[in-house]
Design a protein around this nucleic acid. Structure first.
Length: 491
RNA sequence: GGCGGCGUAGCCAAGUGGCUAAGGCAGAGGUCUGCAAAACCUUCAUUCAUCGGUUCAAAUCCGAUCGCCGCCUCCA
């Protein structure tokens, strides 16, 4: 049973799909007017994981994440860059796709663009006008907030409070200051589509309703987005959708917390943001992904160098263990039948823990996608497996094989869902860690120096060995002499 | 001003009524190692912002206080 925190009720609720075994899910994507920042990455990573988790649990999932490709900011950007708005949108969609790929975020089933759903939006607006939930003003169309009695239910506000605190400059023509635009008449030179109210473009909120309707139906299971979208975006979506269809729009609303810097929300307006690609220049995508998953998705997460380094250290530890397992298993044959019987009683507990990891993982994930706890479970078992590896020589070989190959399988099982810890250790140590390093020596030269140093070591020429170590150290390379050979890592 | 949230060890972070308050990083001591690191072992919160209350029992529920943050304007 999956429980998730529903913003609508303010509580964790058992997930009950509209159609048994199926999940329809919509996540608000990005407005493509610039490179996306780490805050956007957080939502993308967590909701990608949510839909993957539903699939793991056997649900047939339809996951939709949109691109807002028509908007004031895109128009402004186009003027700045001297290209058309659609060129701006195209450029940043491409960039977003690259960023997502590097973060291990899969492509949703549908990635609708607002500009490709203009006629659907017009239909919804037309319906809202017919039902007197909307009105036309000089080529603009506004939604009449007071016509929807449940307005404020999601964000837990009432219309009076909103009016009292309103900081919006009031457009005197609107019937009510809270009314929001469904359709905006275009000024000359702006992107425009024909409509019953004259040439114009859609307001922001209407796209998600129209695209949700089209791809998922008038009522769907889950709608996701950042906490900052609760009001007004999602509140407005509910109002216009339910006023139009007369049906409940969405059963479960889930919202992720912000990425903070020095306890402040990372945002464009504060100017304290890092784009995903800036961060990926320094840290491998897997580090960033692990960092984002190591805090519960509804809590704020503080972006800092220390926290990224912690994530990197965690990956080092995991891959060191994975390497240990591979080294042991390599070259050995799988034992015959019932090797479990050879496992010593002292290792029974470990074996049990290994076999139940996927189940424990699911218990954590079932509880509102508690990835932080799930990762804790993995680290906990890493420690136990390392302990076992440290004395594996004393163990029965078949039993050890059985334990370690089971461990590899269990880790693989949960890693596949989390989208981390999936690489080969060599690849992690040679490539993954290189991203943020200050390694100034070419890899071939490093290997060559290591070879020379080992020749010196073989002759017990420690002075020469240490000189080479120092040279590499100055080039940002750290050496580790292990029983099975010398390994290097970026500092 | 309205609404919402948060405050757990040096740092990050789970836990939201009841076994020893997960896990990680950093630190300390040890095993190992030419040196070093990794790995392993040991250690590291009688206590959960503060003060009251409810309860047989609270980090977990209630109230107050202090501090921080978010939304109310485009925002993941």
């Amino acid at each position: 049973m999956i429980k998730l925190y529903n913003t609508l009720s303010g509580k964790k609720e058992e997930f009950i799909p509209i159609n048994p075994g199926r999940v329809t899910m919509y996540a608000c994507g990005v407005t493509v007017y610039d490179y996306s920042h780490l805050g956007h990455a957080r939502g993308a990573v967590i909701f990608d994981l949510v839909q993957r988790y539903f699939r793991r649990k056997g649900f047939d999932v339809k996951y939709v994440r949109n691109f807002t490709d028509v908007d004031d900011k895109i128009i402004n950007r186009a003027l700045q860059e001297g290209i058309t708005p659609s060129e701006v949108a195209h450029k940043y969609i491409e960039a977003y796709q690259e960023d997502m790929k590097r973060l291990g975020v899969g492509r949703p089933d549908v990635e609708p663009k607002a500009t490709e759903h203009i006629s659907e939006m017009i239909e919804v607006i037309r319906g809202l006008i017919a039902k007197e939930h909307a009105y036309v003003l000089d080529g603009d169309v506004y939604f009449r907030v007071t016509s929807f009695k449940e307005y404020g239910r999601l964000s837990k506000r009432n219309i009076e409070d909103l009016k009292a605190g309103a900081r919006v400059e009031v457009d005197e023509r609107k019937t009510d200051p809270l009314d929001f635009a469904l359709w905006k008449a275009s000024k000359p030179g702006e992107p425009a589509w024909e409509s019953p109210w004259g040439p114009g473009r859609p307001g922001w909120h209407i796209e998600c309703s129209a695209m949700g309707f089209k791809h998922l139906g008038e009522t769907f299971d889950i709608h996701a987005g950042g906490k900052d979208l609760i009001f007004p975006h999602h509140e407005n979506e509910i109002a216009q959708s339910e006023a139009f269809s007369g049906k409940k729009f969405v059963n479960y609303w889930i919202h992720n917390g912000f990425v903070n810097i020095n306890q402040e929300k990372m945002s464009k307006s504060l100017g304290n943001f890092f784009t995903i690609r800036e961060i990926l220049d320094q840290y491998d995508g897997e580090i960033v992904r692990l960092f984002l998953l190591s805090t519960h998705y509804r809590s704020p997460i503080d972006f800092s160098d220390t926290n990224l380094k912690d994530a990197r250290a965690g990956l080092d530890r995991f891959y060191t263990m994975k390497e240990g397992i591979s080294k042991f298993v390599a070259g050995k044959k799988a034992p015959g039948s019932r090797p479990e019987e050879l496992i010593e009683t002292t290792d029974r507990h470990l074996y049990e823990k290994i076999l139940t990891l996927p189940k424990a993982f699911e218990e954590a994930m079932d509880d509102d996608f508690n990835t932080a706890f799930a990762i804790g479970l993995i680290y906990d078992l890493v420690r136990d497996v390392n302990k076992f590896l440290a004395e594996v020589d004393k163990k029965n070989e078949d039993a050890a094989y059985s334990i370690l190959s089971s461990a590899a399988a269990s880790f693989e099982n949960v890693s596949r869902t989390l989208g981390i810890f999936l690489r080969q250790p060599e690849e992690w140590f040679k490539k993954g860690r290189l991203g943020d390093s200050k390694v100034t020596i070419p890899v071939e030269r490093i290997e060559e120096l290591i070879h020379l140093r080992n020749e010196a070591r073989a002759k017990k020429n420690w002075a020469e060995a240490d000189r080479i170590r120092k040279t590499l150290d100055e080039g940002g390379v750290e050496l580790f002499d292990r029983a099975d050979g010398t390994v290097w890592k970026p500092k």
